[in-house]
Design a protein around this nucleic acid. Structure first.
Lengths: 214, 214
DNA sequence: CGAGCCGTTGAAACTAGTCAATTATTGTGG
DNA sequence: CCACAATAATTGACTAGTTTCAACGGCTCG
């Protein structure tokens, strides 16, 4: 299901540096904001490469709470699920184009798959460190620094996710996320071009705040 | 380094059902409480099977805080580290006997290794869900239920780890861990034979408290 | 232009952390 | 084997930080 192209952001334009060359080999599938890519319990067997856009991976808890375990951005690959069945939901957060690679049928564990799995595990461990720490300002700082780095390392962060997504990812409420961002702004560390667009003014300070982890 | 045999608990006696048969193939190495099995930054390449005892896997943060990412108990296998270098410390928490399997030299990813890696990843994801939740009572309840199940599912839990270990694992202080355990006791859910020995009186209630996750 | 969602901000309630004191357990040496 | 020292765990009082509840502002879309 596609959505209207009214959300004017960089996520609309497919830059996809590597996608051009392989477009005829792996057709790009489009997803609009909130579109489900796969659901918890479904059979797994595909890897997805994000040509442009952003995806959230999450799990629903019995009481309605949601734990977002990962975000994936342009150029990244996701979809590695254990046991052949998805443990999580994957949803596009903005207009997103994906290419897929099948990996289950032959049952072999290719080098690529192992690498994806390893990277996912490292991410999970890093994430654990972030979620496990106390301070909300630390969490948000680390989160912003990470997204900045994964988006190319300029000084502008384009957040494809809502405050709710960030909260469910960091184990905070949207209010606390919002307050932390406001505090970073008041401290002069960042500037808000809009709610979803953050300009990093003092990168060293941002790192410093989150610099408890090794 | 061995320690004195003064700690009277079930961790002293090597039952090791599978160990007897393979003792001549894989010699058992002994570790006493607090002994380091491997350190962060060391070259990795071994899998360890716990014949008897218990091990904690953790990471040190720059400010001295410690994040315990996993516990491993009798019969379980650990040591899967990415990139050929350990990202974590592994230490015995009680008298522990280990057998080792080499996996790096040939560079292949055997079925066994993949399974260990997958299990580790699932654990990491589950752990993330626990640490990400708010309530301390929930965390401790889930923790106790998990250890109970991994120890065979009777109604007695033998905790090989200290309150500090539990706190660093769940993202809580030792005081909060202690208070949560006391509260579970006051609620009649558990009984404390000693600080390290918990009798589960109402398993359904224990699950119920932690039963927010799917 | 109005509805609705998202995000921000404020105040109160509550949970977990911190500091401190007490009790229990373990280990050591006489 | 007991006494003492050291460590681990519990408990209490207080503080700090986060959640909750609520109201408001702003942006988007029909």
């Amino acid at each position: 299901m596609q959505t209207s192209a009214s959300t004017m952001s960089k996520y609309l334009m497919p830059p996809a540096p590597r996608a051009r060359g392989f477009a005829h080999i792996r057709p790009v599938t489009f997803y609009g904001p909130e579109d489900v890519i796969y659901a918890q319990g479904e059979r797994a067997g595909l890897l997805y490469r994000i040509e442009y856009g952003a995806v959230r991976i999450y799990r629903l808890l019995a009481d309605g709470r949601r734990q977002v375990v990962a975000f994936y951005l342009t150029g990244e690959t996701f979809g590695f699920e254990v046991g052949g069945v998805n443990s999580f939901y994957a949803e596009a957060m903005v207009n997103t184009g994906l290419t897929t690679v099948e990996y289950l049928p032959d049952g072999t564990f290719g080098v690529e798959l192992v690498e994806i799995a390893l990277k996912a595990m490292v991410r999970a461990q890093e994430h654990l460190l972030v979620v496990g720490r106390q301070n909300s300002l630390e969490k948000v700082s680390i989160f912003l620094a990470e997204i900045l780095e994964r988006q190319g390392g300029g000084d502008v962060i384009d957040l494809p996710m809502s405050r709710t997504d960030i909260g469910d990812y960091l184990g905070l409420t949207i209010e606390t996320v919002s307050r932390s961002i406001s505090k970073l702004r008041d401290m002069g560390v960042i500037r808000l071009r809009s709610a979803r667009c953050v300009v990093v003014l003092k990168l060293d300070k941002l790192h410093q705040i989150g610099e408890h982890s090794v």
